[in-house]
Each structure stands twice: as C-alpha cells, then as structure tokens.
C-alpha cells in the first residue's frame, strides 16, 4: 500500500450531499425567474443582477482576505445566492452605486460581521434590501414599467406594482372594483407581465423553482406551503368580510414578494428554524406579519420585513420547539 490506512470514527460512508451542491441547486432554481425578468425588464434586470452578484462576491473576498484574514469561502455559493436574491428584490434600473452599497450591507454587515455563513441571524439579501428601501425610498419604489423585449435600459418610468396600486387606491377611498380595472389580470400576474422587483414578478417561474427545490430536497414543503396557506386564509377572511376594501387572496399571493419570499427567502437554511414544528410556527408568523403590514401598514409590501422579524425569533423557536425525544413519553401500555 502506497498511502497509510485512514482511521476515523464511524460512520465511514457519507451522503454525497454537500452544502455547495445545495447552494448551486438554489441557483438553478432561480434561473426561470431570472429568464422571465430578462424578458420583461430587458437588459436592466441583467445589469442589476450582475452588479449585485459581482459585488457580493467581491466584498466577501475582500473582507475575508484583508479584513478578517480568514479562509476565503466565495466558492461555497452562498455569496452568489445572496447576490442573486438581493438583485431579485430590487427594481431594475436602480443606480449601480446603490446596488453596491446594498451588497456591502448584505455581505459585510448581515453576514460576515456575525461570523460568516451559518452564524448570521438575518437573511443577508433581505437586510441589504431593507437597508436600501429605508435609505432610498424614492429610487427603491421607482418601478420601471414592463418593457417587453426592449433591450435598451428602461427609462425610469414609474409604473406602480399591483400592491402599490391597491394601497394607494384604498387610501384615497377608492373601492376594489374601481382599482381592479387598473390591475393586471390574474393571468398576467401569474406569468409575470407586471411591475415589481426583478425576481418577484412571475409566479409561474417561482413556483417552478420552488418545486425543483422541494423535489431535490433542498427545502421541505413546510415553510412555503404553511406561509402561503396562512396568507390565503387571512386575506380570504378579510376579503369575504368586505371585498370592496380588501383584495382577493389570489392577488395577494400572486403579487409582490409572497412567492419569492415563501420559496427562496424564508426557507434560507441558515435563518430558518431547524425543526418541522418550528418551521410551521415560523411560516405562520411571517404570513401574519406580512398580511398585517399589507392591509394595515404604511408600506404596500411586507414580506421582507416579516421575514426579518421572524428571523430574529428563530433562536427562540429553536430553543422552545425541540423535536420529540424518543422515549420521553411512553404512549403504549404493556399488554
């Protein structure tokens, strides 16, 4: 034998899943949504995504190499995902320097200052996004209208998002029937021919990606399904009470960041609970906060805030919702 025998403790075989593979599966799952955004927003979407990804990777590299002087881990795919998700939560046509600032916040503050991958409490991409939203509210809500097949950068024509339209309309005392005339049809919402952040527009593409993740066992159904069902039920109740004041559950789920949040942001492995029970609680929490913000808050959209708020509760959820220990309660009697 040329090389010495290896000794290690059992088990001696390991599954071939690696965290890297998980990360790249997420990237694959995001591709459909990215294609739709290219189709709808043209080159603008591409530029935003590229800038976000490159700057996230670059910041991770620079900070780890020169500031923290630790091992550089840009190869593990997590910074790549942060970049993509950050971009997906931004309007296309956002000034490039803002994207870079967002990436810096996401990687530098939300991720590395907590200790890097696995130690961050908040979803980095969302922190970046919310930081930008709070600092530059005007630019962050300047949604370019859909410029189907337009290869030039869209002029910053502000077309509102469906949720924005509803919120504004209702604030001025309009009724839903009037507002819905301005809204894109449900089919358009489903396919993605509407305004909004780069990644959130097409329900169809997001569903495809989400199903891919579930099939590949990267995520389980618990968070997305619970979150969407709870949202549907809550908005449904209000809608049944007064359909003139509240939008239908379908609109709520298809528009805004609900699907992107449910499948890609809330399920982020690091910042979601680790038990099935905990996941259910977590998802219900997100749904409730989202609906409350959407219906009663000042912002038309609340998924990002809801996820961040619930992220903060994850350590608590993990401590209180433990898996049931085997043998902790004897159910069956001795016959």
């Amino acid at each position: 034998m040329s090389q010495p025998i290896i000794i290690s403790a059992s088990p001696h075989v390991h599954s071939d899943r690696t965290s890297k593979k998980l990360m790249y599966d997420v990237v694959i799952a995001l591709i459909p949504a990215f294609l739709v955004s290219l189709y709808v927003f043209g080159i603008g979407a591409f530029i935003v995504t590229a800038v976000a990804v490159i700057s996230c990777l670059l910041f991770e590299y620079l900070i780890q190499k020169f500031l923290l002087k630790t091992e550089v881990t840009i190869g593990d795919g997590s910074a790549l995902i942060t970049g993509i998700l950050l971009a997906f939560n931004l309007p296309s046509g956002l000034p490039i320097w803002m994207i870079i600032v967002g990436s810096l916040v996401a990687i530098g503050i939300a991720k590395l200052s907590f200790g890097g991958l696995g130690f961050n409490i908040f979803n980095p991409a969302l922190v970046g996004r919310v930081f930008l939203l709070v600092s530059f509210p005007v630019q962050m809500t300047m949604w370019p209208t859909a410029v189907v097949n337009n290869t030039s950068i869209a002029d910053a024509v502000t077309g509102a998002t469906p949720l924005g339209l509803i919120k504004e309309g209702l604030m001025f005392g309009d009724t839903m029937t009037n507002i819905s005339a301005d809204l894109p049809s449900n089919i358009d919402l489903f396919i993605g021919l509407t305004g909004g952040s780069i990644g959130e527009i097409s329900a169809l593409a997001l569903l495809l990606g989400g199903i891919y993740l579930i099939v590949r066992k990267v995520i389980t159904w618990h968070i997305p399904v619970t979150m969407l069902v709870t949202m549907a039920v809550m908005t449904g109740i209000f809608w049944l009470i007064n359909p003139e004041q509240y939008a239908s559950p379908l609109i709520h789920i298809l528009s805004g960041g609900a699907l992107l949040g449910a499948f890609f942001m809330a399920t982020d492995l690091v910042t979601s609970p680790m038990t099935k029970k905990g996941m259910l609680i977590f998802a219900i929490g997100i749904a409730v906060i989202t609906v409350v913000i959407r219906l009663f808050g000042a912002y038309p959209e609340g998924v990002s805030f809801a996820i961040l708020i619930m992220n903060a509760f994850v350590p608590l959820i993990n401590t209180y919702f433990k898996p049931r220990r085997f043998g902790s309660k004897i159910k069956s009697k001795i016959v």
Binding site: R17, S19, L117
Partner: peptide
C-alpha cells in the same frame, strides 16, 4: 465546514 443550520441532522 461551518454548520449551515439546515436541520438535516435533526430530521
């Protein structure tokens, strides 16, 4: 590597 808190071990 770092634990990514995926919860797989718990499952």
């Amino acid at each position: 590597k770092n634990c990514i808190r995926c919860g797989e071990c718990v499952f």
